[in-house]
Write a protein that binds this DNA or RNA. Structure first.
Lengths: 196, 196
DNA sequence: TGAACTGTACCGTCTGGTCGGTTTATACAG
DNA sequence: CTGTATAAACCGACCAGACGGTACAGTTCA
């Protein structure tokens, strides 16, 4: 029950949390230093002491989000025994799971703010590039894996902008379809069709 | 050689063009009324005479973009004879074709600005919803069509944020894979695999 | 005591929007 | 053809608020 000692790292986390909440609730356009400070329970001075500029704050947010994403992915890696299309499955699982949570909405708002500072997106860019490479490299059927990964990515992206026309039922079907796609690949000409 | 008579609609288009250019070049963050006015060759007063507010301007930009997309789709409709998975084919074709052009970059920048005014995205939302319905309704294999459409959508979305890890070669392969997917569907368990 | 940290008042700039005035085109009367 | 009236189109100075950032004086802890 230590009187919540305000350490620097402590404040940093509180600030980052506050910023995420704000972005998530009212969008990146309203992400002002004043708002963040208020939300985090300190003054603008204190905020700027921890993050010398708004860009620094944004960069830290990106950093943290990527870290969380990676951690989540790592956690899933151990659960997936099957080696087949490992990376693709991973990516899809991560997307389908993580992306429906709060992180999703944060990412949504962030993109808007980040769009103006292309540099801030660099970490994200390289993360995606890595994922893509892994998928191409470790999949038995890269074509199917690429398409599957893209489809899942789109799901997230559309949600992100609240643009998704995909109903929950659709979602289930898509998930199943993606799994089938990864497991069995794309059918060739002259094969049977069962469900119609 | 009439001294380009300044009609209202004339100015409107000039303004819309200018705004698009700016968004495309420096991003939505720099889309100020002053900049647009200067670019369009009139004063801020004149600009605000044509569009009573910045939101009105943005809304008009969205409107025009949607209109262009629809026109493009209509144009393609006549070229695609095959009835199979018509809607999905159309949508994908439009995306693959149009989205690689200038409209793409404009859309990119726009999203950032639009993210703050969710209402401005309503037209886009309904457009997408319509497309989605059409795809589900008119496809022989809705599952495959949905996945295909999503994959193409992701391609556009990633490009939009300059986040795409997809190389030109990848793109070609994906395009082919999507076509196969639409034509032949997803393979089921216990079928031959030829390319490995 | 000193370093880490916080609070607050303030500044400069940017930007959307207002507003009164000016130009330009058109219609029409004489 | 000329003068006049009218309204649309346009101009640009100005304003108010928001926002990022600074300065600096306190405060707290080791």
């Amino acid at each position: 029950m230590i009187p919540p000692r305000r350490t620097r790292s402590n404040s940093r986390d509180r600030i980052l949390d506050a910023a995420s909440e704000i972005v998530c609730e009212v969008g990146a356009g309203k992400l002002t230093l004043d708002a963040v400070a208020q939300r985090a329970g300190l003054s603008k001075g204190g905020l700027l002491y921890n993050f010398p500029s708004k860009d620094a704050l944004l960069a830290a947010m990106v950093e943290r989000m990527i870290g969380e994403g990676r951690a989540e992915k790592e956690a899933l890696r151990s659960q997936i025994a099957e080696r087949r299309n490992l990376e693709a499955r991973l990516a899809c699982a991560v997307s389908l799971k993580v992306r429906s949570g709060a992180a999703q909405e944060v990412a949504s708002g962030m993109l808007a703010a980040l769009a103006e500072n292309p540099g801030l997106l660099d970490p994200v860019r390289s993360l995606i590039a890595d994922e893509w490479q892994a998928i191409k490299a470790t999949s038995e059927d890269p074509d199917a894996a690429m398409v599957a990964w893209l489809a899942v990515e789109a799901l997230g992206s559309l949600d992100m902008h609240s643009l998704s026309p995909v109903s929950p039922q659709d979602r289930v079907r898509i998930e199943a379809a993606v799994k089938r796609l990864l497991d069995f690949g794309i059918r060739e000409a002259g094969e049977s069709e069962e469900t119609r």
